[in-house]
Design a protein around this nucleic acid. Sequence first.
DNA 1: GACGGGATTTGCT
DNA 2: GCAAATCCCGTCC
Length: 209
Amino acid sequence: MDQFTTLKQSLRKLPADFYIRKATAVAKDLLGKIIVHQAGKVFYSGMITEVEAYRQNDEASHSYRGISKRNRVMFQEGGVIYVYLIYGMYDCMNVVTGCEGTGEAVLIRSIEPVTGIKQMAANRGLKNLSMDSALRGLTDGPGKVCQAMKVNRKHNGLNLMGEKIFIAESGLFSGRMKIGRSERIGIRKGTHLEWRYFIRDNQFVSKHK
DNA sequence: GACGGGATTTGCT
DNA sequence: GCAAATCCCGTCC
Protein backbone atom coordinates (compact mmCIF):
# COMPACT_ATOMS: atom_id res chain seq x y z
CA MET A 1 0.00 0.00 0.00
CA ASP A 2 1.45 3.38 -0.97
CA GLN A 3 1.58 6.49 1.21
CA PHE A 4 -1.33 8.08 -0.60
CA THR A 5 -3.65 5.14 0.05
CA THR A 6 -2.51 5.01 3.66
CA LEU A 7 -3.37 8.68 4.09
CA LYS A 8 -6.81 8.33 2.49
CA GLN A 9 -7.69 5.35 4.64
CA SER A 10 -6.59 7.13 7.79
CA LEU A 11 -8.93 10.10 7.20
CA ARG A 12 -11.93 10.38 9.49
CA LYS A 13 -14.29 13.13 8.41
CA LEU A 14 -15.23 15.52 11.21
CA PRO A 15 -18.86 15.03 12.33
CA ALA A 16 -21.54 17.65 11.63
CA ASP A 17 -21.76 18.73 15.27
CA PHE A 18 -18.06 19.66 15.30
CA TYR A 19 -19.10 22.82 13.46
CA ILE A 20 -22.15 23.69 15.56
CA ARG A 21 -20.07 25.58 18.12
CA LYS A 22 -18.58 29.03 18.63
CA ALA A 23 -16.16 30.04 15.89
CA THR A 24 -13.40 30.59 18.46
CA ALA A 25 -13.73 27.01 19.73
CA VAL A 26 -13.92 25.51 16.24
CA ALA A 27 -10.93 27.59 15.13
CA LYS A 28 -8.58 26.13 17.75
CA ASP A 29 -9.81 22.61 17.05
CA LEU A 30 -9.26 22.94 13.30
CA LEU A 31 -5.50 23.23 13.81
CA GLY A 32 -3.80 20.00 12.79
CA LYS A 33 -6.83 18.73 10.87
CA ILE A 34 -6.65 17.76 7.20
CA ILE A 35 -8.60 19.75 4.62
CA VAL A 36 -9.34 17.92 1.38
CA HIS A 37 -10.53 19.02 -2.05
CA GLN A 38 -11.13 16.32 -4.62
CA ALA A 39 -11.04 18.05 -7.99
CA GLY A 40 -11.29 15.51 -10.78
CA LYS A 41 -8.24 13.27 -10.54
CA VAL A 42 -6.43 15.56 -8.14
CA PHE A 43 -6.64 14.87 -4.41
CA TYR A 44 -5.63 18.14 -2.78
CA SER A 45 -4.99 17.90 0.93
CA GLY A 46 -3.18 19.84 3.61
CA MET A 47 -2.89 20.18 7.36
CA ILE A 48 -4.49 23.34 8.73
CA THR A 49 -1.78 25.43 10.44
CA GLU A 50 -3.34 28.87 10.89
CA VAL A 51 -6.91 30.15 11.30
CA GLU A 52 -8.90 33.20 12.42
CA ALA A 53 -12.34 33.29 14.03
CA TYR A 54 -14.99 35.85 13.06
CA ARG A 55 -18.16 36.16 15.11
CA GLN A 56 -21.30 38.20 14.70
CA ASN A 57 -20.80 40.83 17.39
CA ASP A 58 -17.38 41.54 15.93
CA GLU A 59 -16.71 44.68 13.92
CA ALA A 60 -14.20 42.91 11.68
CA SER A 61 -16.70 40.25 10.62
CA HIS A 62 -18.61 40.38 7.37
CA SER A 63 -21.68 39.33 9.38
CA TYR A 64 -21.50 42.32 11.76
CA ARG A 65 -24.17 44.35 9.94
CA GLY A 66 -26.53 41.44 9.33
CA ILE A 67 -27.36 39.30 6.32
CA SER A 68 -26.45 40.52 2.84
CA LYS A 69 -26.13 38.92 -0.57
CA ARG A 70 -22.41 38.24 -0.03
CA ASN A 71 -22.43 36.98 3.55
CA ARG A 72 -25.68 34.97 3.67
CA VAL A 73 -23.82 31.64 3.87
CA MET A 74 -22.22 32.75 7.15
CA PHE A 75 -25.69 32.61 8.71
CA GLN A 76 -26.35 29.00 7.73
CA GLU A 77 -25.86 26.17 10.17
CA GLY A 78 -22.18 25.35 10.72
CA GLY A 79 -20.54 22.85 8.38
CA VAL A 80 -20.57 24.67 5.04
CA ILE A 81 -17.87 26.82 3.47
CA TYR A 82 -18.04 30.58 2.85
CA VAL A 83 -15.82 31.77 0.02
CA TYR A 84 -15.53 35.45 -0.85
CA LEU A 85 -13.44 37.70 -3.07
CA ILE A 86 -10.88 39.90 -1.34
CA TYR A 87 -9.14 42.96 -2.79
CA GLY A 88 -10.73 42.27 -6.14
CA MET A 89 -8.25 39.47 -6.83
CA TYR A 90 -8.14 36.63 -4.38
CA ASP A 91 -10.60 34.21 -2.84
CA CYS A 92 -10.64 33.40 0.85
CA MET A 93 -12.13 30.22 2.33
CA ASN A 94 -13.98 30.06 5.64
CA VAL A 95 -15.61 27.29 7.61
CA VAL A 96 -19.06 28.38 8.79
CA THR A 97 -19.78 27.57 12.45
CA GLY A 98 -22.60 27.85 14.97
CA CYS A 99 -26.36 27.44 14.73
CA GLU A 100 -28.46 28.57 11.81
CA GLY A 101 -29.09 32.31 12.11
CA THR A 102 -25.75 33.21 13.68
CA GLY A 103 -23.12 34.73 11.39
CA GLU A 104 -19.87 33.02 12.38
CA ALA A 105 -16.97 31.52 10.48
CA VAL A 106 -13.32 30.53 10.65
CA LEU A 107 -10.92 31.82 7.99
CA ILE A 108 -8.39 29.23 6.82
CA ARG A 109 -5.21 31.32 6.70
CA SER A 110 -2.66 28.65 5.90
CA ILE A 111 -2.06 24.95 5.44
CA GLU A 112 0.87 22.60 5.20
CA PRO A 113 0.48 20.79 1.87
CA VAL A 114 0.16 16.98 2.08
CA THR A 115 -1.01 15.70 -1.33
CA GLY A 116 -1.49 17.33 -4.72
CA ILE A 117 1.59 19.46 -4.09
CA LYS A 118 2.75 19.59 -7.70
CA GLN A 119 -0.71 20.71 -8.79
CA MET A 120 -0.76 23.29 -6.01
CA ALA A 121 2.51 24.75 -7.25
CA ALA A 122 1.17 24.86 -10.80
CA ASN A 123 -2.07 26.52 -9.62
CA ARG A 124 0.02 29.14 -7.86
CA GLY A 125 1.92 29.88 -11.04
CA LEU A 126 5.20 28.32 -9.90
CA LYS A 127 6.95 26.30 -12.57
CA ASN A 128 10.24 24.46 -12.95
CA LEU A 129 11.14 24.75 -9.31
CA SER A 130 12.64 22.12 -7.10
CA MET A 131 10.27 20.73 -4.48
CA ASP A 132 12.01 22.63 -1.70
CA SER A 133 11.72 26.05 -3.26
CA ALA A 134 8.21 25.35 -4.56
CA LEU A 135 7.08 24.59 -1.04
CA ARG A 136 8.39 27.84 0.38
CA GLY A 137 5.51 30.29 0.52
CA LEU A 138 3.17 27.95 -1.33
CA THR A 139 0.20 28.04 1.06
CA ASP A 140 1.03 30.48 3.87
CA GLY A 141 -1.82 32.93 3.37
CA PRO A 142 -5.59 32.76 2.83
CA GLY A 143 -5.45 33.81 -0.83
CA LYS A 144 -2.63 31.36 -1.46
CA VAL A 145 -4.56 28.48 0.13
CA CYS A 146 -7.50 28.99 -2.24
CA GLN A 147 -5.28 29.43 -5.26
CA ALA A 148 -3.27 26.30 -4.46
CA MET A 149 -6.24 24.06 -3.61
CA LYS A 150 -8.33 25.45 -6.47
CA VAL A 151 -11.11 26.65 -4.22
CA ASN A 152 -13.12 29.64 -5.41
CA ARG A 153 -16.48 31.38 -5.08
CA LYS A 154 -18.19 28.62 -7.05
CA HIS A 155 -17.72 26.51 -3.91
CA ASN A 156 -19.49 29.04 -1.70
CA GLY A 157 -22.08 27.24 0.44
CA LEU A 158 -20.70 23.75 -0.19
CA ASN A 159 -21.38 21.29 2.63
CA LEU A 160 -18.37 19.76 4.37
CA MET A 161 -20.23 16.48 4.93
CA GLY A 162 -19.94 15.78 1.18
CA GLU A 163 -17.09 14.17 -0.74
CA LYS A 164 -15.91 17.22 -2.71
CA ILE A 165 -14.45 19.39 0.02
CA PHE A 166 -14.25 18.14 3.61
CA ILE A 167 -12.15 18.25 6.75
CA ALA A 168 -10.87 15.16 8.51
CA GLU A 169 -8.78 13.90 11.33
CA SER A 170 -5.89 11.60 10.58
CA GLY A 171 -3.97 9.31 12.90
CA LEU A 172 -0.92 10.20 10.83
CA PHE A 173 -1.09 13.83 12.03
CA SER A 174 -2.03 13.41 15.65
CA GLY A 175 1.17 14.62 17.30
CA ARG A 176 1.21 17.19 20.08
CA MET A 177 1.20 20.80 18.84
CA LYS A 178 2.11 24.07 20.47
CA ILE A 179 -0.67 26.52 19.69
CA GLY A 180 0.03 30.24 19.35
CA ARG A 181 -2.48 33.07 19.48
CA SER A 182 -2.52 36.70 18.37
CA GLU A 183 -4.55 39.55 16.96
CA ARG A 184 -6.05 38.91 13.54
CA ILE A 185 -4.14 40.03 10.47
CA GLY A 186 -5.06 42.53 7.76
CA ILE A 187 -8.04 44.14 9.52
CA ARG A 188 -8.59 47.68 10.87
CA LYS A 189 -11.50 46.96 13.20
CA GLY A 190 -11.79 44.45 16.00
CA THR A 191 -8.02 44.30 16.44
CA HIS A 192 -8.29 43.98 20.23
CA LEU A 193 -9.57 40.42 19.86
CA GLU A 194 -6.93 37.69 19.82
CA TRP A 195 -8.79 35.29 17.57
CA ARG A 196 -5.95 34.19 15.30
CA TYR A 197 -4.64 30.73 16.18
CA PHE A 198 -1.68 28.94 14.65
CA ILE A 199 0.65 25.99 15.14
CA ARG A 200 3.89 27.34 16.57
CA ASP A 201 7.20 26.51 14.91
CA ASN A 202 5.43 25.50 11.70
CA GLN A 203 6.84 27.09 8.56
CA PHE A 204 3.41 27.20 6.89
CA VAL A 205 2.15 30.17 8.88
CA SER A 206 1.85 33.79 7.70
CA LYS A 207 5.08 35.70 8.06
CA HIS A 208 3.48 38.58 10.00
CA LYS A 209 4.79 39.63 13.44
C1' DG B 1 15.18 42.10 5.47
C1' DA B 2 12.12 46.32 5.36
C1' DC B 3 9.20 49.07 3.12
C1' DG B 4 6.07 50.83 -0.63
C1' DG B 5 3.06 50.67 -4.39
C1' DG B 6 0.14 48.38 -7.85
C1' DA B 7 -3.27 44.95 -9.38
C1' DT B 8 -8.44 44.60 -9.57
C1' DT B 9 -13.58 43.85 -8.15
C1' DT B 10 -17.22 44.00 -5.03
C1' DG B 11 -20.23 45.69 -1.57
C1' DC B 12 -21.88 49.07 1.20
C1' DT B 13 -22.33 54.12 2.77
C1' DG C 1 -16.59 56.94 -3.76
C1' DC C 2 -13.61 54.09 -1.13
C1' DA C 3 -12.14 50.47 1.88
C1' DA C 4 -11.30 45.79 1.84
C1' DA C 5 -10.13 39.00 6.41
C1' DT C 6 -4.15 39.87 -0.01
C1' DC C 7 -0.13 39.01 -2.70
C1' DC C 8 3.80 40.16 -5.48
C1' DC C 9 7.52 42.67 -7.10
C1' DG C 10 10.57 46.43 -7.00
C1' DT C 11 13.85 49.43 -4.54
C1' DC C 12 16.89 50.51 -0.99
C1' DC C 13 19.40 49.53 2.42
